[in-house]
Every structure is written in structure tokens, then in C-alpha cells.
Design a protein around this nucleic acid. Sequence first.
DNA 1: ATTACAATTTAGAATTATTCTAATTAGGCC
DNA 2: GGCCTAATTAGAATAATTCTAAATTGTAAT
Lengths: 121, 121
Amino acid sequence: MTKQRRVVYSILLENRDHPTANDVFRRVQREMSTISLATVYNCLDALSKHGLINQVNFDREPSRFCVNPAPHVHFRDTRTGVIHDIAFKEGCQITDLLDLPDGAEVSELELTISGDLPANP
Amino acid sequence: MTKQRRVVYSILLENRDHPTANDVFRRVQREMSTISLATVYNCLDALSKHGLINQVNFDREPSRFCVNPAPHVHFRDTRTGVIHDIAFKEGCQITDLLDLPDGAEVSELELTISGDLPANP
DNA sequence: ATTACAATTTAGAATTATTCTAATTAGGCC
DNA sequence: GGCCTAATTAGAATAATTCTAAATTGTAAT
């Protein structure tokens, strides 16, 4: 854990709005003006590899980053663009619903959903 | 449906191995040597928009294209790199497993899985 | 047929998120 | 302090995709 990684991580914890690498860069710059974009990428990568954060991809848009450690999927509200974390219902295994070949071992699983959320009154 | 779109589509039907746009380009060139890469992108986009094919994204790798019209998800065998179509079990709705907010309406859903498949003897 | 029009294709340039490179800096340990 | 490794930095490079503007095609009307 270097100073830079700590700052990047704390920025992510501070505002869990699934920022892009560039968003993170701009936020981190405010409190560590000498940081470089490459470092932000390095940090995000390191944090990802150590399982502290998740990299979230919607189609081919810029990757976004998520500090939620619990297993969950992502729902993008097409009206607002906001990405929501969606948890699984109790004791549900997505792979139970799939016709996976015998012996298949899942190591990574990414589920992204786009749709409309009812307006919040 | 232009000549180019027809060729792109037929190439995809011919070999359902989830090729990238560039793969498609190279294959199409063999029977229509004047086609351009931009056209292949245009065609893939047009076919996608009309629901004839699906664009498949694994993380930030180049997009791949899939002619399987049935609802399914994608499993990449990490050993061979091959992408397999995985169907849902009878009458299964993935969203049933999720804690979606009331009234959420799903318009798109992409599920990608990476893992190991047992070696085929 | 010929013209007119819109949509598509083409070649190449432009874009952009991300990765790479090489040099510098920082931190830990003797 | 000096040494060593890993991390950071700035900037260049990469690569998939998109954009642009000109040329082509197909179609419908005259």
C-alpha cells in the first residue's frame, strides 16, 4: 500500500458512484496534485488484483470502478445514467440457472443490466 | 440489406466462433476483396441494431459477434480461449434471483463468465 | 433510359481509453 | 548514509473504434 494507492482507495470509498479512471484521477488530483493518470491506472489495477475493488464494464464504455466487496451485479438506469449495485437474493446461485457443461468451473462472472428505474417521487 | 451486409451476415452464420470485427473483415475480404473495415463495422452495427446478431464484450477486449438468436450467456474457457454459448435452463429468469428495485424494467442484460472447462478426452 | 435522391460504402484520418517505456523517486533494511 | 526493489511519473505508443468527406449504389419518378 503506497500513499497513492491509499488515496485512490479512499477516494473510491468516499463516493461510490462508479467513477471512471479519469474521474478518479481528477478527484485524486485535488488532494495530491502531483499524481499522474498512469499511476491512477496502476493503482486501480493493483487494488483490483488484490480484490479490494472491482472493474465494471458496460459494453465498450470506459471502465468504472466499484468498492462494493459483496457479490453483486450492476444496473444502469438508462434515464439518469446512474449505475446501481444489485444484490442477489438469499442463497441464489446464478449458475444454477444455466446449462453449464458438466465440470465447468466458474472463475469470473460479470452481469450488467440496462433498463429503466421508476422515477423517484 | 445490402450486398455487404449479406456477406457479413453469411460469414457469421458460416463459422459461429465469436469472431472480432477484424476477424470478420479478413474472412469477408476473401470473397469481397474491396470491402473496407469501416464497412464491416457499419454492417455489424446495422445487423446488431436489427437484432440479427449480438455484440459480445469480455472486459475491454475487442468486441465479438454472435449469431445465436436465442437468449444465452457467454462462457470463455480460460485454457483454450474458446467462447461457448450457454443456454438458460427451462423457465429460468435471471432477474428472479436479483434484488431489483420495484418497477425496474430490464432492457438489456449481458452475462459473461470465465472459467475452466474439463478437458475433452 | 435518365435524372434525382437518399443511403451506403470507402479510404484514411481522428479519437480515446488504456498500456508501455524509460527515467526518476520513495521506502525499507543493512 | 548507501543499496535495492518496487512504484511513480511524463509522455509516447497502441489499438479498437468512430468519424469525415467523397464516391458509389440502388431505387423511384419522370
